[in-house]
Amino acid sequence: MRKYAIIGLGHVGAAVAFQLVSRGIADELILIDTNEGLARAEQLDLQDMQGRIDTRTIIKINDYSELADTDILFITAGNILAYKEKQAQGNRWAEFEYTKDIVQAIAPKVKASGFHGVAIDTMNPCDAITQYFQENTGLSRQQVFATGTFLDTARMQKVVSDQFDCDPKNVTGYVYGEHGESQFTAWSTVQVNGLAITELAKARSLNLDDLEQAARQGGWEVYKGKGYTSWAISTCAVKLSQAVLSDARSAYICSCYSEKYGTYIGQPAIIGKKGVEEVTELPLTVEEEAKFKHSADTIKEKFQTFEKQTN
């Protein structure tokens, strides 16, 4: 029995739920949202479609006690309207002010439920919020991680694949650091069809900084056009969860705890049944390592600000 739960049924949570049900990934799904009507509506909509798909998922709503034997918990709560308002005011850490309240509300309930599975966060600011959730639920750092720069890496793969006319899956390598402004592409890790992009860029006189900027811009174009992002981030979250349930021990980048820098941050890790099985420390250039440290310091600054706001 593959049992999933989702806390927060906004655009991302609903997209995760749709994928879990339509692809037959979840045998049982628990939907939790403060809006009872929304939770019931999503439950009914997903149930209605099951007469036209090849699998069946049992769907329940708003019962934290169901988390006791849940395998995977997605934390996808947020407030997109408040985020847009803060953005208009030029607040760089716009989502901090209300995601902290969400975590404060749900963490004790998750802890009280007896949940002992793996939790995957998509909330923002991703890295700092994930650390706060982990500390306040008492779950291990192994059990709690976030999508982090998994999506940013996919955006990089898309831009590079467009440039080299290949499948995005033929582009390997990682975007490291904060799921935010201090992230960076570690070009020393990137290959296209098995060839180092640094050498390919020289041969084509390509500016890798331009490619990195294009990858960042792509995410903003989605947000500006739709008012939110959903499909790509939900796909990232579901893919990570499948690595857990199948004990795949897959090498993915995600936001997990760095012992070296003392914070959650986007870095490569091995994902298996326990969550983060191990962190993979790839050799970075001196410049990339400096960027990684800067990003870690930025996240820690955010986290310290967060703690001051909640104390």
Rank of each mutant, 00 (worst) to 15 (best):
S250M: 10
E307L: 15
L81V: 13
G219K: 14
Q213S: 09
H11M: 10
Q104S: 14
L240S: 02
K300P: 01
T305D: 13
G51A: 11
A290I: 08
D33F: 11
S230C: 12
Q131V: 06
A232P: 05
L206V: 04
K273V: 15
F74Q: 08
I270R: 05
K293L: 14
K274Q: 14
L211P: 02
G10W: 10
S246L: 13
G51W: 09
C236G: 09
L67E: 02
K293E: 11
A154W: 11
V279K: 04
Y132K: 07
Y4E: 01
A88D: 05
L282K: 05
T34N: 13
R141G: 14
N170Q: 15
G10P: 09
D45H: 13
T172F: 05
Q242C: 11
L67D: 04
I120W: 00
E289Y: 10
E28G: 11
P268Q: 05
T130Y: 06
L73R: 04
Y176A: 01
A119G: 12
K260M: 11
K260C: 04
I72M: 06
T149M: 09
I102S: 06
E289F: 09
A77T: 07
A128P: 03
R249Q: 13
T172I: 06
Q47P: 00
Y132D: 01
K169A: 12
G24N: 07
G219A: 08
L38S: 02
G177C: 04
G194Q: 08
G275E: 00
L206A: 04
G180Y: 04
K86N: 12
T185L: 07
I72V: 15
I6S: 02
R2D: 05
S255Q: 03
T198V: 12
E181Q: 09
W231T: 08
F133C: 03
I72W: 06
T70P: 01
A128Q: 08
V238Q: 02
P268I: 06
E95T: 15
D167R: 14
N91T: 15
M156Q: 10
C236W: 02
V279D: 00
D27F: 04
N62G: 08
F145E: 01
L20R: 02
K302H: 15
I253K: 02
L38T: 06
I129S: 00
P108M: 12
Q104N: 11
A201H: 06
K3F: 10
G37A: 12
K202N: 12
P283M: 08
L20H: 04
Y176K: 06
Q242N: 13
T122M: 07
L151H: 05
I129N: 00
A88S: 13
H116I: 03
S182H: 15
I75G: 09
E289T: 15
D162N: 10
V222T: 15
S250L: 11
L73A: 08
L200H: 04
E135H: 06
I299Q: 00
A17K: 07
D297M: 11
A39H: 04
T310Y: 05
I271C: 01
R23C: 07
T310E: 09
S22W: 07
N193W: 04
W231A: 12
